[in-house]
Amino acid sequence: MTNQFAADRTLDARGLCCPMPSVKTALALEQMEPGQIIEVLTDDPVSKRDLPVWAQSTGNELLGMEEDGKTIKIYLKKA
């Protein structure tokens, strides 16, 4: 399944646990332009809850979330 959000960048954070998915996402977004979309891959169940909260508190937009087996794909748009 191709992603529906046409991500500009994919961050593979699988195998990492709290707080690294948020930390890596923040560092990756820092190198991106406003309006660009990042796809974050994680298999950490906590990140499913943490990354949307992270997006809300940093003002970056959560576009959507998909589950593909154990992998959770989270799409964020840089503010």
């Binding site: 707080p19 948020s22 923040a26 560092l27 508190s57």
Partner: peptide, 11 residues
Amino acid sequence: FVIATAAASMG
């Protein structure tokens, strides 16, 4: 450091 890096990631 877990709290510090998480907080830093939140800006």
